[in-house]
Design a protein around this nucleic acid. Structure first.
Lengths: 143, 143
DNA sequence: TGCTTGTATGCACTAATTAGCATATAATAT
DNA sequence: ATATTATATGCTAATTAGTGCATACAAGCA
């Protein structure tokens, strides 16, 4: 298939656009469990869609132990034009919600590395609260 | 379907990318028979693919008698970023060949309007030769 | 070695997309 | 009216793509 076609085919799916949105908005390398938690879709779906993005040349992977950090290839996205287009084109309810979830999830990183696997919504909040050692300014402390 | 998805779905097909290439490279409104001759595909395919591009909001049509002039919507292509990306991304053998065919075909216009229907390759060359009234500089005239 | 965990993938099923052909529509010309 | 021409569209078969589930793989840890 023509490379141009495979790039647009890769982008022609809601789940994959949501993944691309995570990359262009966060600007980070993300590992699979983080994306699973952000999009709240089954792990096998995320993996498969990432594979399609990879085959089109849009993203690439760097393994670190069992973790797999995926990141967008800014060079293949010629002249940054597609990249900056995507950055402003991908917005709205679903995309924004995903970013909110991702931001929460990224608070669990240590030294900017992923250190936990899948975490459901409730568990995530608890873990974040537990992780804030210096914040005595939390609500309802000394009123 | 999300508008973002439908835009990329519209672009996720070789024939439709070839059509888009005609628009972004020529910068013109084109009518169906001209695109049929440029891409050398059956008329019903061109019409159907144009309809998909139209539904995604990428192009629009202006009728003039039986002729239908299609043109790309530069405003929906946000901030011109996608437009200029496409302009440089869509190149290579097939795309270039299409443009060569289109350029020939556009020589048959009169006052920048389409005045003939489908024309096969041989017929096209003959018509073009016939159309050059002032060119006494053609090959082999007064050597 | 065996267990757990993060990630990838094979298979069956279903849904979505495309091509091909015939035909419809609508404007023009005779 | 009728014929012609430019364009659109309905239908079917064929292909492609996505989902869901189970399971495989591979690295780290007991």
């Amino acid at each position: 298939m023509m490379q141009q076609v495979s790039v647009f085919k890769a982008l022609a799916d809601e789940t994959r656009l949501r993944l691309v949105n995570l990359f262009v908005t966060s600007g980070k390398s993300l590992c699979v469990c983080e994306m699973v938690d952000a999009l709240r879709l089954p792990q096998y779906q995320i993996s498969k869609h990432l594979n399609i993005l990879k085959n089109s040349g849009l993203i690439s992977v760097q393994k670190s132990g069992t973790w797999a950090y995926h990141s967008i290839n800014r060079d293949i996205i010629q002249n940054e034009k597609l990249y900056s287009f995507l950055k402003e084109f991908l917005s709205g309810d679903v995309f924004d919600e995903d970013i909110k979830n991702l931001d929460m999830r990224l608070m669990l990183r240590e030294g900017d590395r992923c250190v936990v696997g899948f975490v459901d919504e409730k568990e995530l909040v608890q873990l974040i609260v537990k992780k804030q050692p210096k914040s005595k300014i939390s609500k309802g402390s000394t009123v």
